[in-house]
Computed example of a mutant assay.
Amino acid sequence: MTFPLRIGTRRSKLALAQSGMMQRAIAAALGVPADQVETAVPLVEIVTTGDRIQDRRLLELGGKALFTKEIEEALLNGRVDIAVHSMKDVPAEQPEGLCIAAVPEREDARDAFISRDFAAFDDLPFGARLGTASLRRQAQALALRPDLKIEMLRGNIDTRLRRAAEGDFDAILLAVSGMTRLGVTEHIREHLSLDAFLPAPGQGALAIQTRVADRDAPWVAALNHAETALAVAAERGAMAALEGSCRTAVGAHARITDGVLHLTTEMLSPDGSARWRRVGELARPTEADARDLGRRLGGEVHAAAGDQEVDPATLDG
Rank of each mutant, 00 (worst) to 15 (best):
G63H: 06
V90D: 01
H85S: 05
G306P: 11
M87S: 08
A229G: 07
Q94V: 10
P95N: 00
L230K: 01
V260S: 03
A128F: 04
P42I: 00
L135W: 07
L58M: 11
E166V: 12
G244Q: 02
E73N: 15
A222R: 10
I100A: 00
P146M: 14
D158M: 00
R247G: 12
A28Q: 12
D123I: 05
A29H: 09
T265E: 05
R247C: 11
E166L: 15
D108M: 04
E287L: 13
T257H: 13
L206Q: 11
Q36A: 14
K149F: 08
L293G: 01
P33C: 01
L148M: 05
A40H: 15
R291H: 11
R24I: 10
E227V: 08
D216Q: 07
Q54R: 10
T314Y: 10
V84Y: 06
E107G: 13
E281G: 08
A175M: 06
G97M: 00
G259E: 02
Q140E: 09
L61E: 11
D81W: 06
L242A: 03
L148N: 01
H191F: 14
L194H: 05
P104Q: 03
K69I: 13
P104A: 04
T286G: 09
M87A: 15
V44R: 05
G78K: 02
W276M: 05
A27V: 05
Q54D: 06
A238K: 03
L182D: 00
E151P: 06
Q94C: 04
I208H: 02
P199M: 07
V37Q: 00
E60S: 13
V176L: 03
Q94E: 13
L230H: 03
V37K: 00
I114S: 01
D216M: 05
G62S: 03
D158S: 02
V250E: 02
R110K: 12
D258S: 15
Q308T: 12
A28D: 08
P125G: 10
L182I: 02
L297E: 02
E105R: 11
R110S: 10
M21E: 12
A305K: 04
A120L: 07
G317A: 07
G183P: 12
G167C: 09
A34F: 11
T185G: 08
D195L: 08
A40K: 14
R56Q: 13
V103P: 02
Q203G: 12
C99L: 00
W276V: 14
S19A: 14
R129T: 09
A233G: 04
K149V: 13
G8L: 02
G155C: 01
